[in-house]
Design a protein around this nucleic acid. Structure first.
Length: 268
DNA sequence: ACACTAACCTGCAAGC
DNA sequence: TGCTTGCAGGTTAGTG
């Protein structure tokens, strides 16, 4: 589910129910996530107000009176608002009860996500590159960061110290839109082409956010609605199908253990 | 500094 | 039908 647009969609969906509420209690049924859930987190956060929800990369931050909770959805996590009486489903690991008589429920079959409280800045956020939708991120940035990089451009743009929030789906789509082969060496791409690529990374992420994210398998956002970006995917998941521009059969290769689909004619 | 692998987990689909 | 294998949206710790 969650790449940046899905995280942003989730954040926007839950924020109206969560912001400015007081945490009545927190229930942790399964503390073994990517990292163990912060010890005694219930005692720390009980009675605190949630001042604001923000996003950094694919992390959601709940800013409390004292410190903050860092949430990541990993590869299979989701957050939704539930009524307090709602039955627990398999893989519902955490519930935060709020004083508006609703609760925030965390569901994560693969348990690659996290729930961490910290009084100071979270270590996970300290070495992150720029947000892709910010003005800090542009073709200049990609060009200068790539000069010493022999690695393929696709894993390069998925590297968090270069730019955050570009996962496998949107990396695949941005490269298709830019006409750049995913296995081209990052250091051999011109400034001009990086300008195009940076614009397309922004464009594809913004479009996906606008459409409520991409629905893969069973992803629904916090309102229970699917994302509609899937129908806009040009390359991801379309190996063997005709290119939407030139009808050539799309090819697939693996880069850094990730499937990468591209058009051998349009992408050079 | 960079590049690559393995690891954390479960569920599902394809193949035998 | 049932078992095995491989793959899936992410990130980082460790190795060379």
């Amino acid at each position: 589910m969650p790449e940046l647009p899905e995280v942003e969609t989730t954040l926007r969906g839950i924020a109206p129910f969560v912001e400015h509420q007081k945490i009545v209690d927190l229930t942790v049924r399964q503390p073994r996530l990517r990292w163990p859930v912060t010890e005694n987190i219930q005692d720390i956060v009980r009675g605190q107000n949630i001042r604001q929800l923000t996003r950094r990369a694919k992390y959601i931050l709940l800013g409390l009176d004292k410190g903050s909770i860092l949430i990541h959805l990993g590869m299979s996590g989701s957050l939704r608002i539930v009524e307090p009486s709602e039955d627990w489903r398999k893989h519902d690991h955490i519930e935060m009860q709020l004083n508006n008589n609703q609760a925030l429920r965390y569901h994560d079959p693969r348990r690659f996500g996290c729930w961490l409280w910290s009084h100071t800045e979270h270590a996970q956020l300290s070495h992150l590159g720029p947000e892709p939708l910010s003005n800090e991120f542009d073709g200049d940035r990609l060009y200068s960061a790539s000069r010493s990089r022999k690695m393929a451009v696709k894993p390069f743009i998925m590297t968090n110290s270069v730019v955050v929030g570009v996962g496998n789906i949107y990396a695949t789509e941005a490269l298709f839109r830019s006409g750049i082969r995913p296995d081209r060496a990052a250091c051999k791409i011109s400034k001009k082409r990086y300008d195009v690529l940076a614009k397309n990374i922004k464009g594809v992420l913004a479009a996906a956010i606008h459409q409520g994210g991409t629905t893969l398998r069973d992803f629904v956002n916090s309102d229970g609605q699917p994302g509609y970006f899937q129908q806009s995917l040009d390359a991801y998941g379309r190996a063997g199908k005709p290119c939407k521009l030139c009808k050539t059969s799309l090819k697939e290769l693996r880069l850094g253990q990730r499937s990468s689909v591209f058009c051998p004619k349009c992408q050079t």
